[in-house]
Structures are given as C-alpha cells and as structure tokens.
Simulated assay, not measured.
Amino acid sequence: MKENILGVDVCAETYEQLTSRLLADIEEKRKAFIVAINPEKIMKAQQDESLRQLLNSATYQIPDGIGVIIASVLKGGNIRSRVTGIDMMLQLCKEAALHQKKIFLYGAKPGIADEAKVKLEEMFPGIQITGTLNGYEKDENVIRDTINASGAEIIFVALGSPAQENWIIKHKEILAPYVYQGVGGSFDVVSGRLNRAPAFFQKLGLEWFYRLLKEPWRWKRQLILPKFLIKVIKG
C-alpha cells in the first residue's frame, strides 16, 4: 500500500506491518530494499530524475519526516505516523533477535559499527550480529566476501544518502542478505557517539526543531519544509 507524493512513492504501513512483510521476504528469499523518505529528498527528486527513480526503485519507502505525514493528510491519504529510519532499524533488530535472523552492520567510521554492535547486543539479548565492516574499506572483494561469509540475512548500510542507496542497488544482487536498509548516521546514535533528540521531540515529530535549536546554522535547510508543503498544496 503506497501513496505518491510529488512523484515519489511512500508506504502507508506501520512498523509492525512492515516488519511482518520483511520477515516474510527473508523466509521466501526475496530481496527487499528499504529507503527513508523525507521532504528534503522529495524536493531534491523534483530536480533530479535519477534520484526519483532510485527512491521509487526501493521495495519499501518509509515516511521518515513529519512533513510527509502532513502532505498525506493534505492530499487525502492514509499515512498518519512516521516510520523513522533509526526506529525501523531498531524494530528489525528486535524481531531479528526473536526470530534468530542474522544481521550485518556496514558503514560509518572505523570502530563505530563495532560500538553499535555492542550496544545492540545489550538492547536485544540473543541478537545475532554476525559481522561488521567500516565504510572506509574500499576493496570490493573484501566487502563482498566479508558480508557473504557472515551468513547475514539483514544488512544495515551507513554510508550517508544517497551513497548508501546507490551502493545497495549496485550490490544487493551479488550479496547474500535479503533485507537492505540505508541507515545514515544511525550507528553513531546507537553507539552513543551522537545524541538523538529527546523522546518528547520524537513523539511530536519535532526532531528537526531540536536539531535547529542545537545547530541554528541549519535554518536555511529547514526552509525546505514550507516550500515542500506549498508545492504539495499547489500540486
């Protein structure tokens, strides 16, 4: 079940519905690719056809941004709750621990994935993280062999967007995992290197506002939201 917002597909399912579908993908040995969609990506896709095609090529486009929810409401759609990239990752980790699915962490600076692995093992007892590799490894053979040797069925890729999505498209058919998700800076957050917005801001969908308070120089980027909503209304 998907909606189309300014030419970009967005899934309307909840965390639970998506996780159920992803577990089924693993059981049936189907490749699945998750990408997070926010107003900034949708606006960039207006000027970049290759980006729009990349986003729409994903199996699941999750609504990671309060602006996407507002846009859905304005267009009479059914998306009513955010599915953030990091929370989708954590939900998958929880279910992977329960269903004995193996996970690989690829990306970020040296040491970060290893630290995230330790934290995830504390958060989800029984989780099987069978391998990690930092994003600075450039040898394609090493990357392929390390991931495939791990036996992982789920891989989280932290290379930044759209590099991580391009990497997934290029490699998913030659790698063993079935589920692929680009997770940006999530390893930094999980490892404790980077603080996430407090739960109050998360619940209200105001993580962008928290970041603005912490980093005022981001204000120009935040102007994308009203521009996006105006375009949705006019469209």
Rank of each mutant, 00 (worst) to 15 (best):
K29G: 09
K214F: 10
C93K: 05
Q202A: 07
F156M: 01
G182R: 04
S161V: 11
N4H: 08
I169Q: 08
Q100S: 12
I224K: 04
N166P: 00
D139E: 12
G135P: 03
P125A: 11
N38A: 09
T146H: 03
I143G: 00
I42F: 02
G184V: 05
G185R: 05
E16C: 07
G77A: 12
P177E: 07
L159P: 02
Q47C: 10
G65A: 08
A199P: 01
I103P: 02
E28K: 12
W167Y: 12
I168T: 03
K44S: 13
S57W: 14
K214W: 09
I37C: 04
I42C: 02
N141W: 08
A176R: 10
I37D: 04
T84R: 04
E95M: 13
L206C: 11
I37E: 02
R193M: 11
L23C: 07
M88V: 09
A149D: 13
G85D: 01
E122H: 08
A58C: 11
Q47G: 07
G85M: 06
F33P: 01
Y178G: 00
I37T: 02
K138L: 13
M88C: 13
I103H: 05
I5A: 01
Q222R: 07
I62D: 00
I42V: 13
N166C: 04
G67F: 06
K109G: 09
D87L: 08
E207K: 07
A97G: 14
K75I: 12
E140M: 11
S191D: 08
R218S: 06
F156Q: 01
A24Q: 15
S150P: 05
P63E: 06
F200C: 05
L18V: 14
A113R: 04
A199L: 15
I129P: 00
G77W: 13
N134D: 15
L194K: 10
V179S: 00
R82A: 04
V118S: 12
I69M: 10
G111C: 12
